[in-house]
Simulated assay, not measured.
Amino acid sequence: MSYFKKDKRAYLLLADGSVYQGYHFGCEGTTIGEIVFTTGMTGYQEVLTDPSYCGQIVMQTYPLIGNYGINNSDMESSKSWVNGYIVREWCEAPSNFREAGTIDAFLKSQGKVGIWDVDTRQLTRKIRRQGTMNGAITTEDVFAHKDALLEKIRSYKIVNPVPKVSVSKLGWFYERENRANHVALMDFGYKHNILEKLLQFGCNVTVMPWNSTMEDIRELNPDGIMLSNGPGDPTDNIQVIDNIKRFIDYGKPIFGICLGHQLMALANGAKTEKMPFGHRGLNQPVKDLTQDRVYITSQNHGYAVVNNTVDPSVGQITHINMNDGTCEGIAYPDIHAFTVQFHPEASAGPNDTRYLFEKFTDLMERGQEGCL
């Protein structure tokens, strides 16, 4: 167990000036980010490699992390995007038939600073009361440089993360034999499981950079467009929102997930707002209003579409979060599009929300005559 490794102190300094002492794992050094918490009991490797966490220091509320190690199959992208990692305890002797290393070794390989033996329960309560805040993890003497570090922490902001996480080249093509539909996957920080689900549902997929234009889409001539998840404030993506308006005019079916859901709403005149501490975990209850049924969903977002700003003549709210009533899905019948805030590819149900991918493929197969 990790208590044998209490060999070097690390410190967590929050923007309010409070200091949490723990021990370091991963790399040594100092890192600054927006501190968020996720409640999943499993899936820590997916968290570490989810591009939506770009610029953030992630805390796991579940007390033991790393017990099944790191493997080569559960990567949601090619690298880790978190700025830092906070856990109560990590396991130095994982046991799993797929295990290829420890979480400590993985953090070191990715150049990420971590801290453990922190009271994550107390820290979670603070964030729930005061809201998400910036902070820093450091293996240096925090008390000797506290004021200077606090100044950096308080001025920190996640700036333009989408271009950082997106592919840079046009048209990464994934093809399998006898595919019926071709999807343009707009990469705002897509998770690999989204691509895998599209392939499983009989699609060829071309991954497009975040700033792909209508001309790029027209040249590709896909059967449908997928707007992926991604990091940051959706309102910062002015160019993307403008491009989505043109995608809408193109008339092909559109399916948006997470950030894609927010961007689609903004393109249709709705507004978004930052949540106090967001939804991050594997057990968020969401009600599908069209089915009068509740699903357990996987989520990772700090912004939400403001319910009363959705024009009912343009979009219809189809899903709501059962905990706080926030918007979790919108259908746009006149433009053959729909979006969800949660992650249907993440299999929290485990397969309950696969019907959304079925709906998307059905729309593509029926073309512009399809209806939601």
Rank of each mutant, 00 (worst) to 15 (best):
K146N: 04
D147G: 01
A148P: 04
E151H: 12
K152C: 05
K152H: 02
K152F: 07
I153F: 08
I153W: 05
I153E: 02
Y156Q: 04
Y156M: 00
K157R: 15
K157A: 07
V162Q: 02
V162R: 03
V165W: 10
V165K: 06
S166N: 00
V167R: 07
S168N: 12
L170P: 06
L170A: 05
Y174D: 01
Y174W: 03
Y174S: 02
E175H: 15
R176F: 14
R176I: 13
R176D: 15
R176M: 14
R176Q: 13
E177K: 11
E177P: 11
N178G: 03
R179E: 14
H182Y: 12
H182N: 02
V183K: 09
M186I: 14
G189H: 12
K191W: 12
N193L: 13
N193V: 12
N193Y: 15
N193E: 09
I194F: 07
L195I: 06
L198P: 05
L198D: 02
Q200I: 10
F201E: 04
F201Q: 00
G202L: 08
G202V: 03
C203W: 07
C203N: 10
N204M: 07
V205N: 04
V207T: 01
V207S: 01
M208Y: 13
P209R: 07
W210R: 04
W210K: 08
N211Y: 11
S212Y: 09
M214T: 15
E215D: 13
I217D: 04
I217Y: 14
R218H: 14
E219Y: 14
L220K: 03
N221D: 10
P222M: 05
P222F: 02
I225M: 06
M226V: 03
L227I: 00
L227Q: 01
S228N: 00
G230V: 07
